[in-house]
Simulated assay, not measured.
Amino acid sequence: MVLQGIADAVQAYTGLSPAAAATILALMLATYLLVSSLFVAPAPASAPPKPPQQEKKDEEKEEKGHEEEEEAVMPFVYPDPVEVGEITLEQLRAYDGKDPAKQILIAIRGQVYDVSRGRLFYGPQGPYSLFAGRDATRALALMSFDPNDLTGDLEGLSPDELEVLQDWEEKFKERYPRVGHLAADSNQKGAQLEHHEGESS
């Protein structure tokens, strides 16, 4: 009798048969549960207990892993720059970063800078490796990657290009230690040498 009264009330209130109302109610509940499960992270499944010996091995591995991580995080310490004094262009070429025991040097306007701290940029695989062990004066002024521009020759540079070179020189002075200078006649010989190399290649 009570169930019949509820069925009549549902039909009168919703206009649906008791079976249709129950079906709609079940669908609404299922939709609610599905949607709410999308926003709640499921509880992690508990792993089966490990035997005591396996637990000990896992702990040892974890400790070793942490030790290795700590060792890997240790920053690389660069050696102190070494003064080279007066150096020729030919001698400068030995400091191109290919020998990890040597500094990486670049000359700008006759001054030699140790750019070893910028190994990622000037080392063998770096985007500016072309400049390592060379006089990059003209190339920097022209913003050029042409090997023919790797010279100290400033002839024909515009005031704007000389200003660009000045900006580069200031950046090098701020970031890298000056460790020497090019031999006095090295700039002229270097300009001629680079010019002839460019013609032959």
Rank of each mutant, 00 (worst) to 15 (best):
A191T: 07
R93I: 07
D8G: 06
I106M: 09
L193D: 06
P81E: 05
K61R: 15
D8L: 01
G180K: 04
Q166T: 12
D99M: 10
A139Q: 05
Y122M: 04
E59R: 04
E62H: 13
D149Y: 00
E68P: 03
Q103S: 07
F39K: 08
D167H: 09
V2P: 02
F145A: 10
R109M: 06
T151V: 03
E55C: 06
K171W: 01
P49T: 04
G65H: 14
H66N: 11
R117C: 11
S17K: 14
E194H: 02
D8I: 02
V35Y: 12
A139L: 02
E71F: 10
E86Q: 14
E86F: 11
H181I: 08
S37W: 13
A30K: 10
P127R: 04
V84Y: 08
L25A: 15
M74C: 14
A141D: 00
P127I: 09
L130M: 04
A47N: 09
P177K: 02
P42F: 11
P127Y: 00
L157T: 05
D99F: 12
S116D: 03
S201V: 04
T151F: 06
N148W: 08
T151Q: 00
L16R: 01
A30F: 10
T23V: 09
V77S: 04
A9S: 10
G97K: 00
T137P: 00
D99I: 09
Q11I: 01
Q192Y: 07
E86C: 08
H181R: 11
H195Y: 15
A45H: 08
A30I: 12
G110V: 06
I24A: 10
G198I: 02
K61F: 11
F145E: 07
P147G: 03
T88S: 05
L27A: 11
E83G: 10
S129K: 06
E86M: 13
K56A: 15
S129C: 08
E199M: 15
Q4S: 11
E59D: 07
P18I: 09
S129I: 04
P49L: 05
E169N: 12
E70I: 08
K102I: 11
K102Y: 10
Q192P: 02
E155F: 14
P48I: 12
Y32K: 14
D135Y: 02
